[in-house]
Design a protein around this nucleic acid. Structure first.
Length: 747
DNA sequence: CCATGCATAAACACCC
DNA sequence: CGGGTGTTTATGCATG
């Protein structure tokens, strides 16, 4: 059952947003990292006895789930995340509006100032005669100035505090990443944004209220004291923050400040003693306020009235005075928001707010740019639609890719501002992974089915396989990502990878754990699956060896399976054309394939193995009809979602690769192409030439079993010995044929 | 809706 | 007897 749940998580969650990895979902990244850490901490190898594993299961499951989930982020989720972390349109709007408001306020104040100066001038002129008045006015002015100074100082202090708090918040976010949308807050779109750097509308309102409501002194006291007292008080109270909605009272205001630092984080609010209900209320109120603001802003814009007037309400920060008509509003504006300390202070505060927002905006922008750069996307399409675009993009990407193992991702986090780069947390993961690695990968639930990916193996499975895995080798080795291959494929790969082309069950286990971090976790599950697959599939032949029993691969059977699937399934064929549809894509696929070939050369999976099949694959690709390749290369980025691969259905590969995938896992792209190729290749290969034989390599111990001889000569050994480049296709073909015969004979 | 492929879980048998 | 290895069956999901 558990496994199931796991699967569900894995599969469903995710069509991850492709590329976004690092920067964006900071909180996701955080979760991921945490999960990984947990995983890493856990006893690694699954070699232990099943029981022990079973015992561990409970823990394992959750962990794995955690891991998985991040990967499986759906595009929608991604969007949400983006929207939350980045500025949503609404937020942007709000920002702009605020800026406008500030501008207007400033203008208003300036005008007012001018008026006053004029008046003063006039008065002075007039008073020059009367004298007394002049003195009085001067005194008043001096007093005013003094008061203003005091007030401004206070404001500055407040602002500094606020800024510090903001910084703290930002840092917090960076380190912790958003603790997840807090229960209540997450819901509010508008708020999320401001939180990080700045103030949420509600907070702003509070701020304003503070400024307005509390006289200068009051403000100070409240702000400081309350903050302290509020939190310290412990229990119940917390009254402070709550009141905002209802009261402008000093106490409330003061509380707001302290609260501001943490407001976003629900925990804090709770800590402060606010009751959930209160929080809810507050949230509601905030929402209303926001809505009002939006509406008002819209009205204003549309009506062209006044930025500070909307919805029949004065929008002066913290005011909300109801004005039946514009005239009334103007009166109110001139009377209540004339140039005085309060207005000045408010204006300053608003400026600060705007600055904060601007800073945040710039940061978010940077982040966005970095993300887009990382993803190679244009700004417009984060999610990306189905395949076509993706394909193209993927293709292009593949082209661009150096082919070398480390795909492009480098840029990953770039954004300086970006709070936390998830990746950073994962030291183990190769650069390749970069941001993309885990999370993004999620891709769909598709797995590379043998059909697509492995099928080709006929020739040099290893080779083919390599290509797919090779690029991601490091990734899968270090990341707890489920490889997008079926168990059968992996088992075959393991066996092919071995020098003798045969492995004991235990060796297969070892290969799994060695090659994939993922299989270091849920040993009991996947080992059972491995055994199950070995027994279930005809292509795996158990041979009695001196030592005991070893498992070999019956390529014939393996290919039969594939061929059936491939040939049998029109779907595949259909897919091809679709892919072809994009002319560029085809070429790209070819290129990708070529690139892959190069990749193969690189680290390759098989380091251990020694089989050099890789090369073969290359040939196959090259040698084969390009047309085929083109056709084959579906975008499917297999690589994308590891989970998908295993858990899901094989088809997935071809089907569609989530757009995101591409960017996310560069290797994948290549792979996808490969898969296609492989599949095609297989066919091609068969046609192809016989490769010069490989020399029968090392013979392994006698696999007494019937197949042994056959396997030995034809398939197994040679491959490894032969240079990778040359044989793959040919050999494969030969092998297949031979094997086929053999196998048939055997059977 | 059905067929297929795959993953997972579990029961069972066999052997060391 | 316990553990590892194999086999088999059942179930559920995803895809075509």
């Amino acid at each position: 059952m558990r496994g199931y749940t796991m699967d569900l998580h894995i599969h469903k969650p995710l069509p991850p947003p492709p590329p976004l990895f690092s920067p964006m979902p900071s909180f996701l990244a955080g979760a991921l990292q945490a999960a990984r850490q947990l995983l890493l901490q856990q006893p690694g190898s699954g070699l232990k006895s099943p029981k022990s594993q079973d015992k561990q299961r409970p823990l394992q499951v959750p962990v794995s789930v955690a891991m998985m989930s991040p990967q499986v982020i759906t595009p929608q989720q991604m969007q949400q995340i983006l929207q939350q972390q980045v500025l949503s349109p609404q937020q942007l709007q709000a920002l702009l509006q605020q800026q406008q408001a500030v501008m207007l306020q400033q203008q208003h104040l300036q005008e007012f100032y001018k008026k006053q100066q004029e008046q003063l001038h006039l008065q002075l002129l007039q008073q020059q005669h009367p004298g007394k008045q002049a003195k009085e006015q001067q005194q008043q002015q001096q007093q005013l100035a003094a008061q203003q100074l005091v007030f401004q100082q206070q404001l500055l202090q407040m602002q500094q505090l606020q800024q510090q708090q903001h910084l703290l918040n930002m840092q917090r976010q960076g380190l912790l990443s958003l603790p997840g949308p807090a229960p209540g807050q997450a819901a509010l779109p508008g708020q999320t944004l401001p939180q990080p750097a700045g103030l949420s509308p509600a907070e702003l309102q509070q701020l304003w209220k503070d400024v307005t409501g509390g006289g200068g002194h009051a403000m100070e006291d409240n702000g400081i004291k309350h903050s302290n007292s509020g939190t310290g008080g412990g229990g119940g109270g917390g009254g402070g923050g709550l009141d905002l909605s209802t009261n402008n009272s000093s106490s409330t205001t003061s509380s707001s400040n302290p609260a501001k630092a943490s407001p976003p984080i629900s925990h804090h609010s709770i800590a402060n003693g606010q009751s959930p209900a209160l929080n809810h209320r507050r949230e509601r109120e905030r929402e209303r306020e926001r809505e009002r603001e939006r509406e008002s802003s819209q009205h204003e814009e549309s009506g062209g009235t006044h930025p500070l007037y909307g919805h029949g309400v004065c929008k002066w920060p913290g005011c909300e005075n109801i004005c039946e008509d514009f005239g009334q509003f103007l009166k109110h504006l001139n009377s209540e928001h004339a140039l005085d300390d309060r207005s000045t202070a408010q204006c300053r505060v608003q400026m600060q707010v705007v600055q904060q927002l601007e800073i945040q905006l710039s940061k978010e922008r940077e982040r966005l740019q970095a993300m887009m750069a990382h993803l190679h996307m244009r700004p417009s399409e984060p999610k990306s639609s189905p395949k076509p675009l993706n394909l193209v993009s993927s293709v292009t990407m593949s082209k661009n890719l150096p082919s070398a193992s480390p795909p492009n991702l480098p840029q990953t986090p770039t954004t300086p501002t970006a709070p936390v780069t998830p990746m950073a947390a994962m030291p183990q993961v190769p650069s390749i992974l970069g941001g993309a690695n885990v999370p993004s990968m999620g891709a769909l639930r598709r797995r590379h089915s043998d059909k697509y990916s492995m099928p080709l193996s006929s020739g040099g499975d290893t080779v083919f396989i390599f290509p797919e895995i090779a690029p991601n080798y490091e990734f899968y080795k270090n990341a707890d990502v489920r490889p997008p291959f079926t168990y059968a494929t992996l088992i075959r790969q393991a066996i092919m990878d071995s020098a003798d082309m045969q492995l004991t069950l235990n060796e297969i286990y070892s290969w799994f754990t060695r090659t994939f971090a993922y299989f270091r976790r849920n040993a009991a599950t996947w080992k059972n699956a491995v055994r199950h697959n070995l027994s279930l599939h005809k292509c795996f032949v158990r041979v009695e060896n001196v030592k005991g029993a070893v498992w070999t691969v019956d390529e014939m059977e393996y290919q039969k399976r594939r061929s059936q699937k491939i040939t049998g399934s029109p779907s595949l064929v259909k897919n091809l054309p679709s892919s072809l549809g994009y002319g560029s894509a085809l070429n790209a696929s070819l290129q990708a394939a070529l690139a892959e070939t190069s990749l193969l050369g690189t680290p390759g999976f098989m380091n251990s193995g020694s089989n050099g099949p890789m090369g073969g694959s290359c040939h196959g690709l090259l040698g084969g009809d390009p047309s085929i390749l083109t056709g084959l290369s579906p975008p499917g980025l297999l690589g994308g979602s590891p989970h998908g691969m295993l858990g899901g259905s094989p088809h997935g590969l071809l089907g569609g690769s989530p757009p995101g995938m591409l960017s996310g896992s560069p290797p994948n792209l290549l792979h996808s192409a490969h898969d296609g190729f492989n599949g095609s290749l297989d066919h091609l290969d068969t046609n192809g030439h016989g490769s010069p034989g490989y020399s029968p390599p090392v013979h392994m111990l006698p696999i007494h079993v019937k197949e042994e001889p056959l396997n030995m000569d034809e398939d197994d050994c040679p491959m490894s010995l032969v240079t990778t480049a040359n044989h793959s296709p040919e050999l494969d073909d030969d092998r297949e044929l031979e094997e086929g015969n053999l196998s048939e004979d055997l059977e």
